[in-house]
Design a protein around this nucleic acid. Structure first.
Lengths: 354, 354
DNA sequence: AAGCTCGACTAAACCGGTTTAGTCCCGCCG
DNA sequence: CGGCGGGACTAAACCGGTTTAGTCGAGCTT
């Protein structure tokens, strides 16, 4: 009888002391029946069910996640493993919005978001194995897919549920939530072409990352469709530093051969590029047009403000979360294609100087 | 004997099937003794202990977190509740770096980071109660303290461990991890004063947020110490939009009364301010000096590059994580004061035009 | 030699749910 | 009237650890 104790009527009631057995006692039934009633299973008369629910209510009973977890072998937690080095995460505003979207869905579903950040490489598999072998999470969101990514297979082998952000180029048993970012790049290119630009360059993300690659391919295709060849593409690691460096290389040629427009694969690099141009005395947009990707908050507030491809990261997160929840609930959700990104035209793009 | 099954030698072994009972059987001892041995408790002969450990090893046993959780009443998860609206989180690069720092500590401690994002207000208490009543987490990191913040008391009442980021102005039983951001602001002001500035304004965070308030106070004090009075301070919500708006108000006065320098409470607002100045044709730093706070990646890559107060968010996260882990381990860690922030001088500050 | 303490170890309870195997009783059918 | 089916409900096992109460025997004391 461990309850007997000094404090008789403390107002700071020890939380969650009431168990299913207390409810059973009060309702005058067995533990098992209470469990049935609470889970809405057959075999309980409506009358009894109501009484049990009432008792649970009166006692303020809430189920113990721990116990539930142990018996039904679920953790009620979902994971997001961010496969980038901390610095890059730190820099990328996309993730914040994305996470906010995920969180909003999970919290209403009584699930919790477990965040694991890990540098890609050997460590990564270890992290997944850790999450899975301890069953810390019931499922994961796979982001930043790479070429030949082995993670879908790994996660499947570990028996976790998952959703991928974008369609992997490997076999996958998981639903994908995709957005046609290629279309976003194409829109940007078309916008520039309409403005009369012909020498358009692309500062791309790493080709090893699927979306980096996809955007670069979309860029090449859009250029070809516009009848422009020799599209110059510089590959980077998505960092502002790399964006600045790439821009310097692009601009450091004779004026006649210099691109009149640059399409960046994210806003951070575009902003860095804007600065490089400014420093080199090349006016934007008069002599150089620039487009970004992600439509970061800052894009609107810099000078000149940045034309950017807007993806709705929060919505993406929410949809991914819902899809994962559905998977875990045993449904087999289809792939979801999000609304295509749209180009937000601002001051950094104008008619070509030529 | 539930082990007997069709698949004799499958290489995809069902994970974590081996339980403590299996280990006990193999070592020829009781479950309880195995538990003692594994937890390094007294009452086991060294000989037996070694044998048990060897058996556990051979069987590849890993403890079930679920079961462990249930019996010792811990969740092995720590929470970070972000009390800002999603948009603001999304915009603030500080959090990414901070989270990365936290994560790195937790993961090596076998703890997991649970992220809860919630808009301040009524909801917030509910979120904390939810996390606590289900005991989803063993402790939390309290960030973004507000004036008269009721969260330390709430969290204490709920029986969670916690660490606060900064020292609350209310009574708290929890250790605080602090950084003297006031000193950062002071350094910025002193730097500007040395450059001959006398009309210096401050674009502050919300006074309801402790660090916003503290920075504003530090600004006023530093101005007073420099013999400058009538320090103008504009309060904002930390967003780029508000930063731009505040800057417009500051600059929209006759040239003779316009500030020659503006100290911003974060980089985002400073960047937006930079753009407003540029748009208004006020050259930075020739006619206007600008300083930021946080030393975001972008600060280095804009033009002119931004003088900013650098706090090491990742280190902050790591220290907060370690302190929380110590609390949970039963130690009573002291408050930790981080290295004071340092001013990174770049191009956006120069001698006063006067 | 009886009485004690102490270390090593076992059996069983326990955490708080879920789930299975029964029990009991009632009504229906042949 | 006996047998059967099935709904309502109970008792107990179970998930996989931790922890308590207790057993047993060796060694020490007086």
């Amino acid at each position: 009888m461990p309850i007997a104790d000094a404090r008789a009527d403390d107002d700071a009631v020890a939380p969650s002391r009431v168990t299913i057995a207390d409810v059973a006692a009060r309702a005058g039934v067995s533990k098992g029946l209470v469990s049935f009633a609470l889970n809405g299973r057959a075999g309980v008369s409506t009358e009894t069910r109501d009484r049990i629910l009432a008792c649970a209510d009166e006692l303020g009973w809430t189920p113990s996640l721990r116990a539930r977890s142990l018996s039904i072998d679920r953790s009620f937690a979902l994971g997001l493993v961010i496969g980038r080095s901390p610095d890059v995460i730190a820099a990328d505003p996309f993730f914040h919005a994305f996470i906010a979207g995920v969180e909003s869905e999970f919290s209403t579903a009584g699930q919790v978001l477990v965040l694991a950040a890990v540098t890609p490489g050997r460590q990564e598999a270890v992290t997944y194995r850790g999450l899975a072998s301890d069953r810390r999470v019931d499922g994961v969101i796979l982001s930043d897919l790479r070429a030949g990514d082995e993670r879908p297979a790994l996660v499947a082998e570990l028996g976790l549920a998952a959703v991928t952000l974008g369609r992997p180029d490997t076999d996958t048993p998981f639903p994908a939530v995709t957005i046609d970012d290629g279309a976003g790049i194409r829109t940007a290119v078309e916008h520039l072409v309409e403005l009369g630009h012909r020498r358009i360059a692309h500062v791309a993300g790493p080709a090893t990352m699927l979306h980096g690659h996809r955007r670069a391919e979309a860029f090449r295709a859009a250029m070809a469709d516009a009848g422009l060849d020799g599209a110059s593409v510089i590959e980077t690691d998505f960092s502002a530093n790399a964006g600045a460096e790439a821009t310097r290389r692009l601009l450091d040629v004779s004026t006649g051969r210099r691109p009149t427009a640059i399409v960046y694969s994210n806003d951070h690099m575009a902003l860095a590029g804007l600065a490089v141009a400014g420093r080199a005395g090349i006016p934007v947009p008069a002599d150089l047009s620039i487009t970004g990707f992600d439509n970061t908050e800052l894009a609107e507030y810099v000078f000149p403000s940045l034309t950017s491809v807007a993806t709705d990261a929060a919505a993406w997160g929410a949809v991914a979360a819902r899809t994962l929840l559905a998977s875990i609930a045993g449904e087999e959700p289809d792939d979801v294609e999000l609304d295509p990104p749209r180009l937000v035209v601002r001051e950094s793009t104008a008619v070509s100087p030529n």
